[in-house]
Simulated assay, not measured.
Amino acid sequence: MSEDILYDHLRRGVTHTCHCWLIRRLDGTALGFTDHDASLQFDGIVFAPQSGLSARAIASTTGLSINNTEAFGVLSDDAITEADILAGRYDGATVQVWLVCWDDVAARKTLFRGSLGEITRGAGGFEAELHGLTEVLNQTQGRTYMKTCGAVLGDARCRFAVDQASYRLDYTLTTATDGQVFTLEGVENFNAGWFESGLLEVLTGAAAGLKDVIKSDVGEGDRVLTLWSPLNAVIVPGDVLRVTAGCDKTAATCREKFDNFLNYQGFPDMPGEDWMVSVPRSDETNAGGSLNR
């Protein structure tokens, strides 16, 4: 066992150990770093030295309390860049830290496993929160009792196939953009507002993999899509965008726009806040049904 080899080494009193870091982004990019003065390699990853990546002490506790720490690093062109941080490429990235015997990398032990949290940047560097695996215990689980749908369009609960031509468009950009407002020319096969609350994703170019929710979809034929926040990367004419129809989570949209009401994950007929004071009215049909208005 690799940990047993490491423990035997530590018992000697004179040790040859260092730390190795692995950051794996959601787009599959893996970056390895070490505080040793030479490169190390294991598990198919090369851990580069002199990266400027370091960390405060990792506090581990028993039970279900959350293990958090922080990492510090230097922005560099060949590793972690300011442009990638601003573009959100490190959002949700996973992190693993090992204590490694540098002259025998088979002797190692995982000290931390988790994900990157908030990243702040300063003069030539950055500081990132690291969240342990128990961080997920802070997330809300289960369904919420509300009128609107709790599923995400196209996920396992929604079950709607968003890759249909009527609901998804791959478009080669023909006009300049600031990363937040996009003009799509000659798009006439979709109703006005069809993509509002939908998703815009960049498939090619320097911004490939970046995406955000569409705030508004204005016009027909030539339409203007505005995102809630800009994509912080260079996007130029010729880049390919993928635009997916939006869903406002209401029962009417699910039934009329997507014909998917059987999979609706909300409670459209739940009583409103004033249901206790609802009474029959002489100008309404009172057929014994719900009095909720």
Rank of each mutant, 00 (worst) to 15 (best):
L6W: 06
L6Q: 06
L10G: 03
H16C: 09
C18K: 00
H19N: 06
H19S: 06
L22V: 13
R25W: 05
D27A: 07
A30C: 06
L31G: 01
G32N: 11
A38D: 15
F42V: 04
A48N: 07
Q50A: 11
G52F: 02
L53S: 06
S54C: 07
S54L: 05
A57G: 14
T62K: 09
G63L: 10
L64C: 04
S65C: 04
I66T: 10
N67H: 08
N67M: 05
T69S: 15
T69R: 04
F72C: 04
G73R: 02
L75K: 09
L75M: 13
D78P: 00
I80G: 02
T81K: 03
E82T: 10
E82I: 07
D84W: 04
I85F: 01
L86K: 15
G88I: 03
Y90E: 02
D91Q: 12
D91L: 11
G92A: 11
V95P: 01
Q96I: 12
V97N: 01
L99T: 10
L99Y: 04
L99C: 09
D103K: 08
D104R: 14
V105H: 02
V105Q: 03
A106E: 11
A107Q: 01
R108G: 02
T110I: 15
R113V: 10
I119W: 07
R121W: 05
R121Y: 07
R121E: 12
G122A: 15
A123I: 12
A123C: 05
G124V: 10
G124Q: 13
G124H: 12
G125L: 10
G132R: 01
V136N: 10
V136H: 08
V136E: 12
L137C: 09
Q139F: 13
Q139T: 13
Q139L: 15
Q141L: 13
G142F: 02
T144Y: 11
T144R: 14
M146R: 14
C149H: 03
G150V: 08
L153Q: 02
D155W: 09
A156S: 14
A156M: 08
A156C: 07
R159A: 13
V162L: 12
Q164A: 07
R168N: 08
Y171V: 07
T174M: 05
A176Y: 01
F182D: 01
E185Q: 13
F190A: 06
N191Y: 07
A192H: 06
G193S: 11
L200R: 03
E201K: 13
V202R: 02
L203W: 04
T204L: 10
G205W: 02
G205A: 07
A207N: 02
A207C: 03
A208R: 14
A208Y: 08
G209Q: 03
L210T: 04
L210I: 04
G219N: 05
G219A: 07
G219K: 06
R223P: 00
R223N: 09
L227D: 00
L231R: 01
L231H: 01
I235V: 10
P237I: 05
P237K: 03
L241W: 00
V243M: 09
V243D: 05
V243A: 10
A245C: 06
G246H: 02
T253S: 12
T253Y: 00
C254L: 09
K257W: 08
K257V: 09
F258P: 00
Y264E: 02
Q265L: 03
G266P: 03
D274Y: 14
P280Q: 10
R281G: 08
R281S: 13
S282T: 04
A287W: 00
G288D: 01
G289C: 05
N292R: 09
